[in-house]
Structures are given as structure tokens and as C-alpha cells.
Amino acid sequence: MELDLFIRYGPALLSGFGVTILCWLVGSIGGLVLGFLLACLYRFGPKALGWLIYIYVEIIRGTPFMIQLFILYYGGPYVGLVLSPMQAGILSFIIYGSPYFSEIFRSGFNAIPKGQIEAARCVGLSERRILMRIILPQMLVPTTAPLTNFFIILTKETAILSVVTVPELLYETQTMAAETFTFVEPFLVLSLFYWVLVIGTSWVGERVEARVTRHLRRV
């Protein structure tokens, strides 16, 4: 293994890692928020809207991310939506993740006993307050683990952004591999970076979980 390779390509790899983290964080948190809104509208909104959301979820969830990205990036200009690779990447990431997040939250709704919501209505709490204060905190008990799962899955999906030339980690790694005719080193580094991201995400997930389940512990 040649160490000077890393000295030469280190800055590019690190910048690629930075771009990956940026796209991943903005995209997945955006998807999380959009997914939460979709799940709430599905649950509490009018029935017709529920059907629209259902169709949206099935279509976006059922088709590959790469195709969605292509449609947005190459098809967007036909309807006047000209996006930079990075903008298209992040936007399609938000759209791609939202149905999965929405379904995870929907499973959370199923876990709250009806009586608690009745009790909240009886003391006059508003529906919004009930959602944010009674339902959401408890919804996080069964959903933190699947949410962590999906954040982890999304770390790896960022690699697909390289196909529209977003200068993220895989893109930089491929550049390095092509220019230096090496294969093992660049992809070892790539795996290491993803591994760091996955370990970090699991760690955060476990902290969040400990926080949201603390009321379940018996003393």
C-alpha cells in the first residue's frame, strides 16, 4: 500500500466525504420531516388526500432511486426545473426517503393506546398538542430503531449521487482509482468512511433510544 497516495488524494477524499455527509444529512433529515408530515396527513387528513399519499408512497418506494434521480436531473429541464447536480441529488434524496419514513411513523401510530388520547381530549388539550406531546414521544419508542436502520441504509445510497457527478465520496474514490490505477486502497478507504458513518449513526440512534425509553425502566 502506498501511503503517499493518501497524502496526494487525502484532501479530495475528505472533501468527498464532506459532500457525502452534507447530502446525506440534509437529504435524510428532509425526508424524515416530509415523511412525518405525510404520515400525519394520512392519519388525520381528509380521505382523498390519504389516497394520494398512498399512491405517492407506493410509487416512490417501489421504484429505484437512480431512476428517480435521472428523471429529476435530466427530465427537470423539460418542465423548467434546472437543478445543479447537488441540488438534484439532495432533492431526490428527500423525495426518495420520505415514503419509507412515512411508513415507519405510521407503524408508530399503531402503538399508542386509544385511552391516552381520550384522556388528553378530556382535559382539553388541542389536537396539535396531543400529537406533539402525547403521541410523538411515545411513537419514538418503537420507531427509533427502524429510523436508525433507514438512516444507515441512506448513507450507502448517497453513492448513487455520483452518477450525476455530485463530487461525493464514491465519485472522488473512482477518480483516485482511475488516475492511479489502484483498486484496493481507494475502496478500502471508501469502506472505512462508510463504516465510520454507520457506527456514528448507530451510536446516535442508541442515545436517542435510551432517552425516549427511559420512562419504561422500572426502578
Binding site: 429505484p64 411508513e103 415507519i104 407503524s107 420507531t143 427502524p146 436502520n149 433507514f150
Partner: peptide
């Protein structure tokens, strides 16, 4: 399984992909 069903379906769909 009942509580986690929507999340499990997510996972199975990812598996197909």
C-alpha cells in the same frame, strides 16, 4: 410483527431492490 409491519414491509421492498 403487528406493530412493526409497515417498517418490515419497507425492509422487504429494499430487499427486492
Amino acid at each position: 410483527i403487528r406493530i412493526g409491519l409497515p417498517s418490515l414491509v419497507n425492509e422487504l421492498i429494499l430487499l427486492v431492490k
